[in-house]
Design a binder for these strands. Structure first.
Lengths: 139, 139
DNA sequence: CTGACACATTAGAACAGTTCAAAGATTGGA
DNA sequence: TCCAATCTTTGAACTGTTCTAATGTGTCAG
């Protein structure tokens, strides 16, 4: 799938300077930035950009389906530009690093569906990343 | 497993009036209350109880391992007294109702582990509950 | 090209959920 | 009973996010 900026251009989305740097901040493969991190990155490229615009734009991209919103344990929302390939997440409980993993979706047996119309599944594997594991054992 | 209050008594946890009503508010099988809902329920039984105590107590119970903390999409933490039986959740995207479901844990293939030491898995099935499905189609 | 309207952006106030700090109340043990 | 430890309370502070009202910018019809 084309990168985020490309996709937005195709949609005829009005691409202002602010929106471009925000989209550029989200570029990449394993990107799971929180709003304040997007703000940081965007500001390096365009210092005048405001936090409100970052929030506006991220919310808009989410409702356009161009970004996925991930709710992290710490209460900050994170944004994932990888909406093309269905995937789950592997998160380090110590440093919060988040990686994409591609695994089979877990299944919900019919007798557990409670009459729900199923729409999706999200799985988060929690663990300790190599860096945190080695620094913990040496501590 | 014994209900929450029972377990707490066994641990010799100092059981004050406030703590008891908070624990009682969490009693039941499919309970996934947010802090303000616990506060509400507790206050019905003991009007003097304060919100700070609710937060203090919930956090304490979580670190004792007697409650599980669930991070909901809306930014409110929810608390689950069912820590005995490993389970996952089924959530209505419209009304937020949350049910426990018992399914097999999804597996993370070794080639996807990125060197992480795995600690746990959380799965959330998202869907629409029967009530919301019928009111949506009639709307 | 120009005016005008729609849309984007901004700063800061407002808001929700949660945590913190200091003072007061309660508990259990000597 | 008195003390020390612990619990509770109030209210302020903090974090992440949304809202508001004013200003700025792009686009297009004429």
């Amino acid at each position: 799938m084309a990168p985020l900026l490309e996709r937005l251009r195709h949609r005829g989305w009005r691409l202002t300077a602010q929106r471009r740097v925000i989209a550029e901040a989200m570029a990449g493969e394993h990107v799971h930035l929180a709003a304040d991190e997007v703000f940081e990155r965007a500001r390096e490229m365009l210092p005048e950009v405001s936090l409100a615009t970052v929030y506006n734009t991220l919310n808009e991209l989410v409702s356009m389906g161009e970004l996925a919103e991930i709710t992290h344990t710490d209460g900050r929302k994170r944004y994932d530009p990888n909406v093309a390939e269905p995937h789950h997440h592997l998160v380090c409980v110590d440093c919060g690093e988040m990686l994409d993993v591609v695994t089979e979706d877990p299944r919900l047996p019919t007798d557990q569906q409670h009459g729900f119309e199923l729409l999706g599944v999200e799985t988060t594997f929690r663990g300790r990343c190599p860096d945190c594991a080695s620094s913990a054992s040496s501590a």
